[in-house]
């Protein structure tokens, strides 16, 4: 979400580091519960923002139960706005395990329009045919433009279109970008 450089009218921290940690642990439990164990479950983070969260959820699942495969996928070559705005791919996709017949939990930090998730679904399909794909996000900020909904949510955060949401392991910050969107 590249925002124009403008006067910031304030940033507020809505989640702190320990909130993130608790949300990750809860989402890990929910993944285990929803999948009735972890048979044939893998975690795939969407580049760039979803990868640290995928690793964190994967590590939490390993602490609670046992390790499952964790990978990453870059969806930039599948986006629907190529040519409309600069595309900056993240790190190269790293899916070192087959996904045919696997229940894939796609992970991103912020769910907004849903367009990145759509691109990631298309990218995933080029690697195989998962049994199911579920979606985990740390923040659902609303404003969906596609029929996509998350299965696991860290925090629902209603936002204005002019706001920018930043998520990392230290917490969640909402900034106003000063009116121009």
């Amino acid at each position: 979400m590249a925002e124009p450089a403008g006067a910031r009218t304030g940033a507020r921290r809505v989640l702190a580091a320990d909130d993130i940690g608790r949300a990750v642990t809860r989402m890990a439990h929910e993944v285990i519960e929803a999948n009735r164990g972890l048979d044939g479950v893998a975690i795939v983070g969407i580049e760039a923002g979803g990868v640290w969260l995928a690793r964190a959820i994967g590590a939490a699942i390993e602490r609670i139960d046992h390790a499952i495969p964790v990978g990453s996928i870059d969806a930039s070559l599948y986006r629907d706005d190529i040519g409309l705005r600069p595309v900056a791919p993240g790190a190269v996709s790293d899916l070192p395990f087959p996904i045919d017949g696997v229940s894939v939990v796609l992970v991103d930090d912020v769910l907004y329009t849903g367009r990145t998730v759509r691109a990631a679904l298309d990218a995933l399909a080029d690697y195989g045919r998962p049994r199911a794909v579920q979606l985990a996000v740390m923040v659902d900020r609303g404003h969906r433009e596609l029929p996509i909904r998350p299965d696991y949510v860290g925090k629902n955060l209603p936002t204005a279109l002019i706001e920018k949401v930043t998520v990392d392991a230290d917490g969640v910050v909402i900034e106003s970008t000063g009116g121009s969107q």
Binding site: L77, Y78, I82, V92, S93, D122, D126, Y127
Partner: peptide, 12 residues
């Protein structure tokens, strides 16, 4: 990485 896949094609 695309070229290493069994189906080396993307819709970009």
């Amino acid at each position: 990485e695309v070229n290493r896949r069994p189906n080396p094609k993307v819709p970009a």
